[in-house]
Design a protein around this nucleic acid. Structure first.
Lengths: 135, 135
DNA sequence: AACTTGCTTGATAGCTGCTATCAAGTTGTA
DNA sequence: TACAACTTGATAGCAGCTATCAAGCAAGTT
């Protein structure tokens, strides 16, 4: 059993966010000790993991709650949950592509500035130069 | 010259967001036509591109404004801007790694559900089974 | 000329998902 | 007995959109 602080460190999610998620119903089977403090089991860590995963690819909290609720219902919702995972994966792959595109621009900018620094060239970004950005 | 609608379509950023960014000072050299409508030049598209890039890797708007202001100052801020691009790139690479990790989990879940569906196995996610999630 | 359609503007209100602050309670160590 | 370190829930605040609104202009139709 883990305390909220331990889970926060293990999963790299703030305690605040964990409480917020708990309040949102994302950890349906969590137990409490005699002082009312949350006790996270290994299974609960699994819930944290999938919630973190869904959030980090931009799934909104309402949809996450829906997924959690489907899990609770059981067998009859397997196909529906499978479809959610599939479309989430699709979204993640698109984000990967987008990130690659942005990295290309950052690479270009990086080289642009390196060139300026190494060769003491004028800064075409400077609006006073009448030579604005060409990329 | 492009209208805000055209820019919205080309750059895949909502008109709302473009106006919000404009108001935030992210497009410092934008001009207006005789009806006070914004006219985006090719250079302005470049500003939209870099702002979108910085936002999509999680740079906050205050930091973006700072970067834009450094660009306006000119030559003397080249090193500073270079450092910002470098650290932004670093952040983007970390996000790429994080995304890969999350994709692994999604792959696992996908196969988990495929296995359930193909073999008509019981749903160990179902809490009534007393066999909660093991991943 | 009047009307409609389609675009634009700025102001403002509302939303999501945290994030920070707070008082209050429990536990362990000195 | 005090304190430090943890926990709780409630509440307020924040960033970054997102949606709604009235108002204005331009071009085309009747």
């Amino acid at each position: 059993m883990y305390t909220i602080k331990e889970v926060s460190e293990i999963m790299e999610v703030s305690e605040h966010t964990l409480r917020f998620w708990a309040k949102s119903g994302f950890f349906p089977f969590i137990t409490r000790d005699k002082n009312n403090n949350r006790q996270f089991s290994e299974d609960d860590l699994g819930w944290v993991r999938i919630v973190k995963c869904l959030r980090s690819v931009g799934t909104d909290n309402k949809s996450i709650k829906k997924y959690v609720d489907l899990c609770i219902v059981g067998d009859s919702t397997i196909k529906e949950r499978y479809d959610i995972i599939r479309s989430t994966k699709e979204k993640a792959l698109q984000q990967m592509q987008e990130l690659k595109t942005q990295l290309e621009l950052l690479d270009y900018k990086e080289k642009f500035y390196e060139n300026l620094i190494e060769n003491n060239l004028e800064d075409i970004w400077n609006p006073m130069n009448n030579k604005m950005q060409k990329v």
